[in-house]
Amino acid sequence: MDTERSTAGDGPAIAEQDTMALAEQRAAEGRTDDAPLGVPGRPLNRRSPYMVGLLGAFGVATTYAVVLLVSAAREVLILIGLALFLAIGLDPFVRRLGRVMSRGLAVLTVTVVMLGIVAGFLAAAIPPLVTQSTNLAHDLPSYISQLRDHSSFAGHLNEQYHIQSRVEQMISGDNGGNLVGGVLGAGQVVLGAFGSTGTVLVLTIYFLADLPRIRQLIYRMVPNSRRPRAMLIGDEMFAKVGAFVLGNLATSLIAGVGTFVWLEIFGVPYPLLLAILVALLDLVPIVGSTIGGIIVSLIALSVSVPVAIATAVFYVVFRLAEDYLLVPKIMGKAVEVPATVTFVAVLVGGAILGIVGALVAIPIAAAVRLLLQETVFPRLDRT
């Protein structure tokens, strides 16, 4: 009697052991040299109501998680995108040097040259910048007295637009803050800017060294039948980005040098400080040089009204020369975007990502235009 109960109780356990042994035997038989992990079984029925609901819920949850992740890492992603943008712009130099040396040595050479230019520029610019900034702080009371003088041109502007009260409000703050708080806030901004600049610089060097592997990874995600076509279009997009970066740096350098020479000729104060400001603002397409010209023209009012008017005319002429002579000559047809698309792209990019968005808007618009012309429009024309 007890033996029968024991045998009946052990029945499920013995059946389970037999089932696992049979599964292990089949797994050993299914392992071959061509498929060491076995051959995949039949796919699940994706049309079943359960699978449709499961995949739909998983897709919604994944999309929501990606949106939260992008929102939380927005600032870091902007720095990564900017570094990749600069790496693509510097890649033509690396490839040219790569014809006579290894890519690692070419990246090192470009990095050393780039850091040397930045260091030399800072060494030459910081002493006069400090001097001119000190002079600006010293002359600030006289500018304030000119604003209070209702008989002067600056006084009329102050009376009409309340410039002094707006400046005092910005310095004091809306919540009862003081100048010390403003200085501390400015210090935090400066430290944050230096930290972001260092991060972008390091990432640019890494991306520049690994750009061939990054390119291969991007193209590997395209189906094999369409991969050659994707390579041709992608390489053309990279070329447009590189041409824009190099051309934008060249035009900004010309804008800064032209500003410095003009201000030196007419004796406008703080020429180097304003030249650097104009060169940095000119990096932002369309609106950058205009804002820089307005600021310099207002500073030129401290010399005389005719000099300020002449300075404004100089920037109008320079803007026309930049749009119709410099940009076509330097960039050629590499970045071929209509004026309307350029303006809209800069506005949208600036609204989404600020200065960085306005900076990368034109090459992105050029890449999207190329993609539409080569893939979307021909397909629509055939339908």
Rank of each mutant, 00 (worst) to 15 (best):
V113N: 11
V316R: 03
F244W: 01
L217H: 13
I330H: 04
I14H: 14
G256S: 10
F343N: 06
G181T: 15
A154D: 02
F238L: 14
D323Y: 06
V202W: 05
V337F: 12
L122H: 00
R103K: 07
R369M: 14
V189T: 15
K333F: 05
T342S: 15
G176D: 09
P212W: 10
T111K: 00
G332T: 10
N248H: 06
F244Y: 12
S102R: 01
V113R: 10
V346D: 02
P141G: 09
A250Y: 01
V202P: 04
I80P: 05
Q188V: 06
R96G: 12
V305N: 05
V327I: 13
A310I: 06
L353W: 15
L105H: 05
G155Y: 08
A239G: 10
A300D: 07
T290M: 15
Y143E: 05
T342W: 08
T383W: 10
G89C: 06
K240V: 00
V130T: 07
G350D: 09
Y206S: 08
V313L: 11
G185A: 13
V344D: 02
T32A: 08
L326M: 13
M114E: 02
G182R: 15
G98W: 01
R382S: 07
H156K: 06
S145T: 02
P40H: 03
V296S: 08
V368A: 13
A239N: 09
R226K: 02
M331R: 15
L44C: 01
V118H: 02
R229I: 11
Q188Y: 05
G177P: 03
F93Q: 01
F58V: 15
V66L: 13
V76C: 05
L22Q: 15
G116N: 00
T259W: 00
G258W: 09
L108S: 11
R215K: 11
A27K: 07
G9W: 07
V245I: 13
P92I: 04
Q17G: 12
V305L: 10
L372A: 01
G38K: 12
G53R: 10
P49I: 12
A361S: 03
P141Q: 08
T199G: 10
G267E: 07
R42T: 10
G104C: 04
F153W: 08
D381R: 04
A312H: 04
L301R: 02
P43H: 12
R226W: 01
S304D: 12
V113M: 15
I276V: 09
H156D: 00
T32I: 09
A250K: 01
S133L: 13
R213I: 09
L82F: 12
R99W: 03
Y206R: 03
F121W: 08
A310G: 11
M101C: 02
A27L: 10
L97W: 01
T131R: 14
L372W: 01
V70I: 14
